[in-house]
Structure formats: C-alpha cells, structure tokens
Design a protein around this nucleic acid. Sequence first.
DNA 1: CGCTCAATTGAACAATGTCAAGTTGTGTGG
DNA 2: CCACACAACTTGACATTGTTCAATTGAGCG
Lengths: 253, 253
Amino acid sequence: MAPTSRDENQKRLDIHNSSIPVICRSCEARHRGICGALTSEQLTQVSRHTTRQQVAANSEFVSTGDDVKHYSNVLAGVVKLTRLMADGRQQIVGLQFAPDFIGRPFRDTSEVSAEAATNVKLCSFPKSVMDEMIAKSPDLERRLYKQALDQLDDAREWILALGRKSAAEKVASFLLMIAENVDPEKLDRDAPICFELPLKRADIADFLGLTIETVSRQITSLRKAGIIVVEHNRTVTVPDLERLRAHGEMDTG
Amino acid sequence: MAPTSRDENQKRLDIHNSSIPVICRSCEARHRGICGALTSEQLTQVSRHTTRQQVAANSEFVSTGDDVKHYSNVLAGVVKLTRLMADGRQQIVGLQFAPDFIGRPFRDTSEVSAEAATNVKLCSFPKSVMDEMIAKSPDLERRLYKQALDQLDDAREWILALGRKSAAEKVASFLLMIAENVDPEKLDRDAPICFELPLKRADIADFLGLTIETVSRQITSLRKAGIIVVEHNRTVTVPDLERLRAHGEMDTG
DNA sequence: CGCTCAATTGAACAATGTCAAGTTGTGTGG
DNA sequence: CCACACAACTTGACATTGTTCAATTGAGCG
C-alpha cells in the first residue's frame, strides 16, 4: 500500500563492518526494510536460514488458511494480499511493495492469500527464527509495529475510498497512489510523471471493488479528458498531477 | 485476547500489593487492555497523569488534523473513527470497544476523527508520558503491536465487505459482528441472542458505505424474512445465528 | 400535546454490473 | 517476418442495485 513516512533512522554503518552476511550485502532492502533494525550478529543469524526466491507474476505463494512457516521481505515487484469469497468474488485487501515485510506475527495461519502481481523477488526466513529474534529485539519489534500502523493507515484510507468514492474517483485515487509511489529517482522535475501500471485491469478491479469493465471505462474517460495518457495499456503518463488529484482526492485531512 | 501468564501474575500481585493506584483498582479495563502489561510502578506513574472522562453520544473528541496530546483507553461505550471528505461524505474507518486503546504512536496529528457513538467512558493520559513508557517497556509495545495487528485484520475484513458484498450482505455481516461482540455473560445458552445496536442507522450507513435508506430497507427485509426481530428500532434479537450468518458471510477462510 | 430527531417507505433516477461482441497486444511456431 | 492463438483490454446494449428526493410514520421528551 502507499508507503507513508517509513524510513527514519535506518542508516547504519556497515561500511566499516565486514561481518555483514554476503547475501545481505547487496540487498536492496537492507537498510530500508526491517533488516535495518538488526545488528550484524542478528543479520548473520537470520541469513543462515534465509532463502531468496523468485515468484512469477500471478502465482499464489500463500493461500488463505495455510499454515505459515516463513516470513518474507519483498525485494522487488508487487504482492497482492487477497481475500476470496465462497462464490468466487475476490478483493485485494493490501498491496505490498519493496521493502515491505510479509507475514503475521502472533498467528500461525494466514487469513489472506498472497499472490505475485508482477514478477517478485522475495527474501524468506523461518518464522520460528524470526519470532525469537522479535522477542529479543525491541528495535525490530518497533519497526514491525510502525509498519503495521502504516498499513492500518493505508487500509483506512482505502476503506474511505471503497465506501464513499465513485468509480471515477476510485480509479483516479488508485492512479494517484501509484504515481506517488514512483521511484523518486525516476522523477524528472518539470517532466510529466510516467510509470508502468504494476496491476492488470482485473487486479485494479479487485483492488477497487469494481468490475474490469468499469475500470476500463473510467480509464478511458480519464484518457479522453486528457488527464492521463496511456500507451500499450500499461504505461501511464500524468501531465498534471494536480489535475489527477482533483479527480480522486476530494479528501479532507 | 487470551490472558497470558503475565495477566495471572499481575492479578495475584494486585491482591497483596496495595501499591496499585486507586483510580486503577476498580478499572474495567485494568487487566484486559494495555494496562495489563504495566508493572505497578509504571501504573502508578501513568495514573498520576490520568484523567477519566465521560463523552456524550455524538460528540467528537478528536478532529482530523488535530494535534493529539493524549492517548485514551475505552472503558465503556463505542467510539467511531471517521474520515470526512470535502463535500461532506463520511465513512467510519474503525469502531473501538472497551478495552481498546485509542491513539496513534509515532505520529502527532490524527488522520481520523474520533466520535462517541454512544455515551463513552475514557481513561486518558498524556502522549508524552506514555510514549516514554512505550520506549522503555517492550511488553507494553508488544501489546500495542498485537492490537494494531488485530485492527489491521478487522480493517481488511471490512475492506472485503465494502468492496465485494451487496447491501444485504453488508447489513447482515454488521449485525453478525455486533452479535458476536455481545458480552459472553449475557449469552444465555439456547436462548436467542439479543442486543442493543450501539449505532443509529446513519452510523451504520457510514460504516457500511451505504445510505440510511438502504440500511433501513435491508433491516426491514431481514425482519420480514424472520431472521431478526427488532424492537424500538434499536433492540435486535437473532433467533438463529447460523441463518443470519448465511446471509452475510459467504466467506472463505 | 406538540415538538424534534430517527426511521421507514415509495417512486423516479443514476451509477454500476452483466453479458456479449469486438479490438489490441504479445508471444510462439512456421 | 508472418500467421496464429490467447490473453488483456475496450465498447455497447441492457439489467440490476443502490441513491435521491419526498412524504410519512414512529419514538422520546419537555
């Protein structure tokens, strides 16, 4: 979900410390994710049990009701957390980007399923090892707590959108969320914002509580109004962010 | 939340240890809420700054954007957390019952407003004192973390409802949620479940992302189908929980 | 009794979903 | 490079759901 202010004192000096495990040294999430709260000893300990994995787009790697034995960090790509109803209706209840942590401490079975929306790189480690470490490291727990609070804020933001926004506003808000998540590096000042949609229409629909057709129509209408430019169905350019914002964020606060 | 061995210890201590602050001794939330994680010294320290307050139904005690200086525990009643859009559309993004904790650690302004849905009793303490205590007490932080995770689970449950359930299913699910929250004490085995709705129609509508009229129609329809009995608009009896469940929880998992 | 706020009900209407074609995009084997 | 197949996306006509507006009934209270 939309990362809020997540990273504070994450910069720690491992430049001088060669005891950082090899697998972690070049990790994209090394400082930004929860690992930033670990000492090099802890990092070494976790890394002994760590596995990197690639998950192909659209494959589910945790199912509702599963016994979960591992936590993961998202290193790249986008993960959908979904809930399914008996008759097949589906709803995305959370989106996780790098360097988010996936897992539910203090509970062994998953209430949601996790599925790769794009190709995803994960760093996984056994729940047992991590749980022990969480119990011993208040810093680590605090970081997890902060992430949970951010996710709660995000969830509430989407509760407002799902409950009260029109289809047009939902789609605009979604595009805005993605736009605001674009790598600051890729942001060319004064150039229009441009990005690849990480979700296909069906996923956007599942996220917004709409149908594919409605999503498509709303995107078309934003396109015809000149608020966005779409190429190859997935590449979106926003000439004027404020104009997009005006369509989705009639929000107070 | 299941009582841990810590609770037991604390309970035993209470009996022999007269250092428990007077204000806390008869507190309904003393053991169940976050205070259960505090030592008697910490409890004494907090209690020095603690104020009890009553909030009348329908009055707002935190507004969106407010600088929040206090945390609170809900001792009795129901609190609505709401978000408001510029044009007046409103959505309830969370409901808090005793002994829930109200507040947002690591952030000074509130993204939501808090309003009493019923008459409410609160126990409030300064953010600064509590923040310090949280920093020093991993047990306390863990309890808050657990509550945040539970609230996140709840929020996701409602995201599914808001995004994918019909009006009829939403209302049934809401009634079910309230029914399942009824004091276990009041549960007479083999007698039908009966409770007072803590929310008026307008609040239920704001919670479910519907209009007052739709909520009213759905309640009428459940009533005519014999699934619920309604007296004085607020008193609801559910003769057969499973039958109600079948109308709202076509849920997997 | 006569307020007032809360809740219900009805009828017309708008927004979104459903169903059924089409079209575009992409990868694959010839 | 083309032809084909398949998936993702778009578009239109129509059905359904939920909203809006307006009127009415019910409940609590001085």
